[in-house]
């Protein structure tokens, strides 16, 4: 995931000529696009490595609530996302010479909420796609449209924070919170049914 996001940064540096284009206009979009792709790669592997030796069956048979399996998977993916973002964001800022004039609180909040939004549905879809024939394909096709609200909210919030004079990111942050809340509850309600096949 980390290597992938570094490669994305590297490729973006060549895809957009930073000398000619005013890069700060597309900077938030680039940042979240890189995170979306990297997250997609990382999250799709959440259940994939259970498949070859069928360790998932063992997990399901283990005593205890199955909810914990889902929450554990979610937490792991979330921590990976956060770690990746924590390393990649400074690199992004320094490599593209983006001046930092925002406040720390909202920026960290948008990174955390954005990572949560990407991970929640991603974990559920990863559980679905691990059991399917062309799962990788279905994961991609379904995850992208579901993540569009996250992308819109995070990009707009980041844009509001970084612009001079800085705008108000809270409207978008609230939208992001609502999304995170809905898609945290819904998989928890539906997750139990995944195992009954």
């Amino acid at each position: 995931m980390m290597a992938f996001v570094l490669m994305v940064i590297f490729v973006f540096a060549f895809a957009v000529d930073t000398g000619r284009v005013q890069f700060s206009l597309v900077f938030p979009g680039t940042l979240w696009m890189a995170f979306l792709f990297a997250g997609m790669i990382g999250i799709s592997r959440t259940y994939a490595h259970e498949v070859p030796e069928d360790t998932l069956t063992g997990l399901i048979l283990a005593p205890g609530d199955r909810m914990t399996i889902f929450l554990a998977k979610l937490t792991t993916a979330f921590l990976f996302m956060i770690a990746m973002e924590a390393i990649a964001t400074p690199i992004f800022f320094s490599l593209f010479n983006e001046p930092w004039n925002g406040s720390w609180g909202p920026m960290i909040l948008v990174l955390v909420l954005g990572a949560l939004g990407l991970v929640e549905l991603g974990t559920l879809l990863s559980a679905i796609s691990a059991n399917l024939k062309s799962g990788e394909m279905i994961f991609t096709v379904l995850l992208f449209p579901f993540e569009i609200p996250v992308l819109i909210c995070t990009v707009e919030a980041t844009q509001a924070m970084l612009s001079v004079p800085s705008g108000n990111p809270w409207l978008w942050l609230h939208g992001l919170m609502a999304y995170d809340a809905i898609f945290l509850v819904l998989p928890l309600l539906l997750y139990e049914y995944l195992w009954e096949v």
């Binding site: 679905i128 059991n131 379904l142 819904l186 539906l190």
Partner: peptide, 13 residues
């Protein structure tokens, strides 16, 4: 059965 369950979950989301 998988198809039906998974697609039901996707439809609800």
């Amino acid at each position: 059965e998988r198809r039906a369950t998974y697609s039901a979950i996707i439809a609800l989301i």
